[in-house]
Design a protein around this nucleic acid. Structure first.
Lengths: 337, 337
DNA sequence: TTGAAAGCGCTAACAC
DNA sequence: GTGTTAGCGCTTTCAA
C-alpha cells in the first residue's frame, strides 16, 4: 500500500507538504498542491487512518454500542447516529452487545482501544458498578435508555411514564375500563415505567387494574403471541378485558396475531396498543395505534453531546417529544358499532 | 490515557515484555507475567488499537458496507457478520452507503484507510468501473447482492430466479393464472431476476403474463400501497388477477394494506406473496407467504471468504438454500371456499 | 527470558 | 511556503 512518502517522492515535495495538502492546510503553493493531488490520484492514495489517529491523538471517530442490529429500533438509531456524526466530520463505528454482559464489555473495550472521540452506549446488562467505572474513564460516553446514578447528565432517556400515560388516556377516553398489560420480562426500568404510566392514567380515573391481567414475556413477536394465549385463558376464567396495552410493537403484533387466530376481531372485540412506532406498526392489520418517540432526536443529541464533551463543552439534555399515533387498533366503545 | 510504557514502568519490566504478555506470547517468566497483569489491572490498561494496527500492519478488523441499517435485512446481515468475525478473532466495523454513490465511495474509502483485513460490501450505486477498481485494489473485498464482471468469484448472490420460480410454482399449483407483479423501481439485477423466475414458472405452464399488471415502485411499504392502488384501477378496467407477487416483503405488506383498505379480503379475494422472509412477514395479517433465503449463511460465508483471501487462501462459493415459507396469504383456488 | 531500539505512516513544531 | 525531524504507542528483531 502506498504511503505518504511515495506521494511526496512522485510529487517531488516533502511529506509535510503532502500532509498539508491532504489535510486542507492553506499554506501551500498552488503548484505544490497540484503536484500532490496529481500524485495522489496516480497512486490512488488514501491517508492511513491508524497512523493519523496515532499522530493526531484523535481518531475522528465516534463509537456506538447497541444490543443487536437485527432489532430495527437500533438500526434506526444507528442510521441517525451516522448521519449526525458525519455532519461533524466524524465517522462512526458500530458494535453490538448482544444482550450479554461479556459482549457489552468487549464492545466498549474495543471502542476505547480505538481511541474514539465519543461513545454512545446502549448496554443494559453491565452492572452499575462496572458501567460507572467506564463512565468515569471515558468522559465523552453517553448512555442511552438507562439512567446511571451520578451520571444523569450523560444519560438520555425518553419519558416512558408520560408515553404510556398517553396510552392510558386514549384507552379510557374511548371507554375502556378493563385493560390487560403485556410487559417485558427483561428487568429494565422501561418496563416498569410504562406500566406505571398506564396505572397513573387509570388511577386518575378511579379505575383499578386487574393485576392478574399483567403478563410478562420476552419483548418479541413470539412473546406477544404467548402472552395473548395466557390472556385468552384468563378471559375464559372470567377476567374480562376490552383492550391490551403492550410494552412495545413486537408484543402488540404478536398479541394481535394470536387474538386474530383465536377468532377475536381487532379492534371490534379487543383493542391493542403498542409502543415505539416501528415500521412494522404500519404493516399489521389493522395498523397499530402506538406511541411514537423520536429516535432521530435522541441519536442526534447523543452524538452532539458526546462531541461537545470531547471539546470540553456542555450541551444540556432536553425533552423529547413523545406522542400517540392513532391508527386502527383501538375501538371507541362509546360509539355504537 | 495510560500507555504500554506506564505499564512497563510499574511492572518494572521493559515494554517488550509487556507487549509479550498482553499478546499472549509464551516466552515470558511467570513472575514477569504476573507483574505485568497486575500493573495492567491497576492502570485499567487496554492496548491502543491504532498503534497496534500500525506496527502490525494489520488491524484485525473486517469492514462492512451496507446501504442502510434501518433496513432490517441489513441489520440481520450485520448481526451475523459480527458473529462470524468475532469467531475468528476479528472485530467488525460497519458503515452505510445510504443508496448514494458518493456515500458508498466514502464508506469504502473509510474502510480502506482503516486497513481492514477484509471487506464485505453491499453497494448498488457505484458504477461498475469504479467498483472494479476497488475490487482490484482490495483483494479481500467481497461483494454482496451484486455480480461484477471479472470478479464473479468474490460475488455472493442468492439465486433470485429460482427463488421466484418457487413463488410461480406455488401460485400455479394453487390454481392462480392471472398474476400481477409488484416490482422494485430500483435498477438492480434482483428485480429483473425475480420477475424472470416468475415468468419462467408461468411459461412452463403455458400461462402468459398480462404485462400491464407489472407495476414498479420504491421497494417499501408506501410503494406497495401505491402499487396496489394502481392495480385496483387496472382491475376495474378489466385486467383481472387473483394474486399479487411482490418483489419483497415490504411491497407485499403495503399491497396487503391497500387491498384490505379497499375491501378485498386476503387471501379469499386476492392472494399476496412476498420475498425475503423478514420479521414483518410474520406480523402481517394474514401472515405472509414469502421466500426465505439464508442471510446468516451469506454473511458467514462472506466473512470466511474474506478472511481466507486475507490469508491467501481460497474458499469456493457454494449454493444457498432458498425456500418458500407457506403462511396464510395465498388461497388455494382449487378448493371450494 | 529479557531489553534496546528500529520502524509502522502520519502530524506538527521548528528552522529556513 | 517548504523541508527536517521528533514522536504518537505499539511490535519485533537482534543481542545479551
Amino acid at each position: 500500500m502506498a504511503t505518504i512518502r511515495d506521494v511526496a517522492q512522485i510529487a517531488n515535495v516533502s511529506v509535510a507538504t503532502v500532509s498539508r495538502v491532504l489535510n486542507g492546510s492553506s499554506k501551500v503553493s498552488d503548484k505544490a498542491r497540484e503536484a500532490v493531488l496529481k500524485a495522489q490520484k496516480e497512486l490512488d492514495f488514501v491517508l492511513n487512518a491508524n497512523a493519523r489517529a496515532l499522530a493526531h491523538q484523535d481518531s475522528e471517530t465516534i463509537g456506538v454500542v447497541v444490543s443487536d442490529l437485527s432489532d430495527p429500533y437500533f438500526g434506526l438509531m444507528v442510521k441517525y447516529c451516522e448521519n449526525a456524526a458525519r455532519q461533524s466530520g466524524n465517522s462512526l463505528i458500530v458494535t453490538q452487545g448482544f444482550h450479554d454482559e461479556q459482549r457489552e464489555i468487549m464492545a466498549i473495550d474495543n471502542l476505547i482501544s480505538r481511541n474514539c472521540r465519543g461513545m454512545i452506549v446502549h448496554a443494559l446488562r453491565i452492572d452499575d458498578e462496572k458501567l460507572s467505572h467506564y463512565m468515569q474513564k471515558v468522559p465523552t460516553m453517553i448512555l442511552i435508555n438507562r439512567t446511571l446514578k451520578g451520571f444523569e447528565e450523560r444519560c438520555l432517556n425518553i419519558d416512558n411514564v408520560s408515553g404510556y400515560y398517553l396510552v392510558g388516556q386514549e384507552l379510557i377516553k374511548k371507554g375502556h375500563k378493563k385493560i390487560a398489560f403485556v410487559g417485558s420480562s427483561h428487568t429494565i426500568a422501561d418496563a416498569a415505567e410504562r406500566l406505571e404510566g398506564l396505572k397513573k392514567a387509570l388511577l386518575e380515573n378511579d379505575i383499578k387494574m386487574d393485576e392478574s391481567l399483567i403478563v410478562l414475556r420476552e419483548p418479541y413477536l413470539e412473546g406477544g403471541f404467548d402472552a395473548a394465549s395466557e390472556l385468552i385463558e384468563k378471559m375464559q376464567q372470567g377476567h374480562k378485558f376490552t383492550a391490551v396495552a403492550c410494552y412495545n410493537d413486537y408484543l402488540a403484533a404478536g398479541t394481535m396475531a394470536r387474538l386474530t387466530e383465536a377468532g377475536y376481531k381487532i379492534p371490534e372485540d379487543i383493542s391493542v396498543v403498542g409502543f415505539d412506532d416501528l415500521y412494522l406498526a404500519r404493516c399489521t392489520n389493522p395498523p397499530l395505534t402506538t406511541v411514537h418517540h423520536p429516535v432521530d432526536q435522541i441519536a442526534c443529541l447523543a452524538i452532539e453531546m458526546s462531541i461537545a464533551l470531547f471539546k470540553q463543552k456542555h450541551i444540556k439534555k432536553n425533552h423529547f417529544d413523545i406522542s400517540l399515533v392513532q391508527r386502527k387498533s383501538v375501538r371507541d366503545l362509546s360509539v355504537a358499532n
